[in-house]
Amino acid sequence: MITISNWGLVRIDDRLIHGQVIAVWCRHQTFKRIIVIDDAVAKDAFMQQVLRLAAPSGITVEAMEVAACVEPLNAIPNKENVMLLMKTPLTAKRLYEAGVQYTELNIGGIGMGPGRKNVFKNIAMSEEEKGHLKDLTAKGVNITLLTVPGEKSKSFKDLI
């Protein structure tokens, strides 16, 4: 049996750390760490520095590759103080399949791009990305489309 751990927030947002995250989420809940799961950012010292500087004081920011994040993530004791940030549904699926389990997934923002269609507010996704999220739903992950607490939200189940 897999023990399912409760992360503070698991969020897909292709702008990673920005106003909604800093001014609203970090005031809504107590976060001590923000961990960006992104293969490109994990290799980019410049972007990591920018993200660290953008985060509110008192919150540390790290970036990890999907392939190398499972053990360190699962070893974190206080997961309720941790925010996991990813850019795409694909990363979210890879993360789950690699062995980092979560029960709730928040989709905060996915910008328009080639092949993507707008589904809700500032959230767009391609058919393929929808498929990834369906796979996660099938595994019991509850997916909610929500920019910030207090705003109108939508369950992913209602989209399909």
């Binding site: 947002d13 702008r15 750390i17 920005h18 106003g19 995250v21 800093i22 920018v50």
Partner: peptide
């Protein structure tokens, strides 16, 4: 793409 988020975060904190 990389900078728009972080700068929005700091900018909102300072301006708004």
């Amino acid at each position: 793409v990389g900078l728009m988020g972080p700068f929005a975060g700091i900018g909102d904190t300072i301006q708004q």
